[in-house]
Computed example of a mutant assay.
Amino acid sequence: MKQEDDIKQAIETMRKGGVILYPTDTVWGIGCDATNAEAVKRVYEIKQREDSKALICLVDSDARMQRYFRNVPDVAWQLIDSLKEATDAKPTTLILDGAINLAPNLIAEDGSLGIRITNEPFSKELCFRFQKAIVSTSANISGEPAAQNYCDIDPRILEAVDYVCWSRRQEHKPHTPSSIIKLKENGEVTVIRK
């Protein structure tokens, strides 16, 4: 299947409220429309994860990220700019306060949300074409290891989703989860995962 057709199928599935499995800039992810509370609820069910543990989102650009927060602090823009300049930068998820315009069950109790701008070609194009944030949580049952490659995905997850992307299924190489950095509006920075 051509990547373009794969992306079309994934988008069509998410527009109908479905859940997809897709390759990201880190590990394989379970995804859905980040504005659809029913779809988000299904992702929690598939992962067998408490909904008090927040999920993260992927977007394709700074401009798209800005739509989902009341205010993006200056320190976040500085970090994003420095990540763009670093050719070997590890994918980095930012947790920011004041999340808006998303499914309420996606936003943490304190009003924060983890978001990452992806530069990996498949997930970036998927986010760009979908025109909205896409949920991105590791394709595993909660508490089990993240699926680095397609071949690592638990059959229960493969059966539970509505569409499994074809792109990058043959890949066999190490992938690691993103770094996670929490940024407060007052400029306070906390590294959650290196």
Rank of each mutant, 00 (worst) to 15 (best):
G98T: 02
K2Y: 08
W77H: 11
W77K: 07
K182F: 02
K182W: 06
D162H: 14
E188Y: 06
V75Q: 12
T35L: 03
R168T: 13
I157R: 13
S138F: 00
R67F: 13
K16N: 15
N101Q: 10
D88R: 00
G111C: 01
Y163P: 03
D6N: 10
N149Y: 03
V59M: 02
N149W: 05
R156N: 09
D88W: 00
D162C: 04
N140K: 02
T13R: 06
I181A: 07
L58R: 09
V189N: 07
S142D: 14
T26D: 00
D62V: 14
C32R: 15
S142E: 06
G31A: 07
E171T: 11
D5Y: 08
R49H: 06
G98R: 00
E85M: 14
G111A: 02
S123V: 11
A147M: 09
T35W: 09
H175P: 10
S82M: 15
G114Q: 09
E50D: 12
V189P: 02
A10H: 01
S82N: 08
Y68T: 01
T35Y: 09
R193N: 01
W166A: 15
P73T: 10
G98E: 01
I56P: 05
R67H: 13
G31N: 12
C151W: 14
Q9G: 13
D110Y: 00
D152Y: 05
L106P: 09
E188N: 14
E144P: 15
N71E: 15
K41L: 05
L58N: 11
E185Q: 15
I153S: 02
Y150Q: 02
K184H: 14
R169W: 07
Q148A: 10
D88S: 08
I192N: 01
A86V: 15
E125Q: 10
K16A: 11
A103Y: 05
R67T: 14
P145Q: 00
K124E: 10
Y22L: 07
Q9L: 10
W28N: 04
P174G: 05
V27A: 00
V19G: 06
Y68F: 02
F122E: 06
V164D: 01
F69I: 04
D25C: 02
A160E: 07
A147S: 11
N140L: 01
N119H: 14
C151M: 15
I107V: 15
K90E: 01
K124R: 15
V189T: 09
A86S: 13
E159R: 14
Q9V: 10
D88H: 00
L21I: 10
V191T: 13
S112E: 10
I80T: 07
V59C: 05
E120D: 10
S112T: 12
S136Y: 04
T190R: 13
W166Q: 15
P91N: 03
L106I: 00
G18M: 02
P104R: 01
L126M: 04
I100L: 06
